[in-house]
């Protein structure tokens, strides 16, 4: 009895010691970046020295890092954006900034990126008006339409389901109002996102293509193939003509195929994506 009492108390002491060590450890880790209040950096400075090298001084991106002012980036929630910065992603070469920046610095950096997004020049800003379609339809029916009759998912994706010809719409409702979404569906040519430009290309054998364009240089040009999944390279030697287009790849009459109720359901689904 005495023996087991002793065992129990020493076990308890051991556990307490262990806890103490781990608490001390985590306290150290929290202060691990060792930043004093005087060293807190302004978001402009943080952006300039840590972000601009890859994402460009205005956030438009470079050959190293993607644009931060694209529709894709705008569509991210604040939390997702902050998380992407804090966690990083080694597979695309993005460092983990959560280990070196304080929470406050991260939050203010996100706001700074938002300001870059607002400053990014938009030729034809979309309407501030509300959509002429109400958004109190059936969201489940709207989602089914997105992936079927309305044909949205042929080019757009939501939570990674769908195509890559057009922008990802996972958070579209959090960044755009119903009027802007409606206008984007009915007047797609008004404001085509830089990352989703199109090209008219005629190959040497006369085949004509109108497809999402990614890049060209003096030797080659890259388009998304017909399946909408693979980037295809065309060498300039094998091409008759390659002209960038201002037109959106999206038809402007997609809503025509839907009934009034269906339009309402689809808009309900899209505006609710946040």
């Amino acid at each position: 009895m005495v023996k087991s009492e002793f065992m129990r108390s020493s076990l308890a002491a051991f556990v307490i010691a262990l806890l103490a060590v781990s608490i001390q450890g985590s306290a150290q880790d929290q202060g691990g970046i060792g930043v004093t209040p005087g060293e807190i950096m302004e978001p402009e400075l943080i952006y300039g020295q840590y972000c601009a090298a890859c994402h460009g001084s205005t956030g438009k991106g470079s050959i190293i890092g993607p644009s931060l002012v694209s529709m894709q980036a705008k569509a991210l929630s604040d939390a997702d954006l902050q998380n992407a910065i804090a966690e990083g992603s080694p597979e695309v070469g993005m460092p983990m900034f959560g280990r070196g920046l304080t929470r406050g610095e991260l939050t203010r950096l996100v706001q700074f990126v938002r300001s870059l997004q607002s400053n990014a020049r938009v030729k034809n800003p979309r309407t501030d008006a509300k959509a002429p379609i109400s958004t109190d339809g059936n969201v489940i029916a709207g989602e089914l339409l997105f992936f079927s009759k309305a044909r949205c998912s042929q080019c757009h994706s939501v939570f990674d389901a769908g195509g890559i010809t057009g922008p990802d719409l996972t958070h579209i409702g959090s960044r755009y109002g119903s009027g802007q979404i409606y206008e984007a569906i009915t007047k797609p040519d008004k404001d085509v996102d830089r990352d989703f430009r199109s090209m008219n290309l005629t190959t040497a054998d006369g085949t004509q293509l109108f497809a999402r364009f990614r890049f060209d240089n003096k030797n080659s040009v890259q388009l998304l193939d017909k399946s909408g999944t693979l980037w295809t390279t065309y060498f300039k030697d094998d091409v008759q003509s390659a002209d960038r287009s201002r037109d959106s790849l999206m038809p402007g009459d997609l809503l025509d195929a839907l009934s009034e109720d269906e339009r309402k359901d689809l808009m309900t689904f899209l505006t609710g994506l946040n």
């Binding site: 060792g34 930043v35 020295q49 840590y50 090298a53 460009g56 460092p95 900034f97 070196g100």
Partner: peptide, 20 residues
């Protein structure tokens, strides 16, 4: 393009922007 730079452990320490 040269830029000011502050060292902070583990973070990028570039001191500029390469414009390609």
């Amino acid at each position: 393009v040269t830029m000011d730079v502050t060292f902070r452990r583990g973070l990028p320490y570039y001191g500029g922007i390469p414009v390609m």
